[in-house]
Amino acid sequence: MGSTLLVHDDWLLTPEGAAIHADLATAVVADLHLGYEWAREAAGDCIPAHSLAEALARLERVLKHAPARRVVVAGDLVESHRPCARTRADALRLASWLADRQVELVVLAGNHDLSLRESGIDPRSAAPLAEELEVGGWTIAHGHRPITGPKSISGHVHPVLCFEGATAPCFVVGSGMIVLPAFTNNAAGRDVASAPLPHAWARAQPRCIACAGDQVIDLGPIDRLRPPRRPTRNDRERQTRS
């Protein structure tokens, strides 16, 4: 396969949106939002089931980049706060699919995983989800709460880069920081070139690393991608007010 990968610190960044620690054989992904279609079903939508199949196809590609013995999901494994039986079944199928390949699944708590946080993904062996996990000196967590530890890998924000009408998921990396793109295509992203950015990113001097097809492209500091937006009248007045 002619994929381009990129190394940031100890981590290999893949075009699927995973970070892989090759020495520790650990792959980290975030924001799978499994059962997205079943959440939409509960809202009344009639759409094709797709999220598990897409997640598995994508994980398969991730595991080809580097042998991993462990996949860490940094939060938001499922979409719904109240996952239905089908969503739980999808999560268990993902776990057994990984088990068939001798890969351990570690799920950390995200803001969508409310019920999993109490019961774990398998109701029979109900171990509640952990909030954080340390891998090679890096703290992995979902990122909806402040993360302790000097170096962190998180998800939650769903960063993307919008340009010329197209949208590409992207990593945001800086000193001691990796923010993963959403692993699912269903998430609408936060555009790093135009949307307000989390305050925590500022001191990390973040760079944007975009995923496109089978390539990862380093586009340099995010500041460079943010064109000075022409302020509206309301923006200007807001500035003078404050």
């Binding site: 340009f163 496109a212 097809g213 390539q215």
Partner: peptide, 9 residues
């Protein structure tokens, strides 16, 4: 998208 990103780069 990859080509467009590379051009942007």
């Amino acid at each position: 998208p990859a080509d467009a990103l590379k051009r942007l780069h």
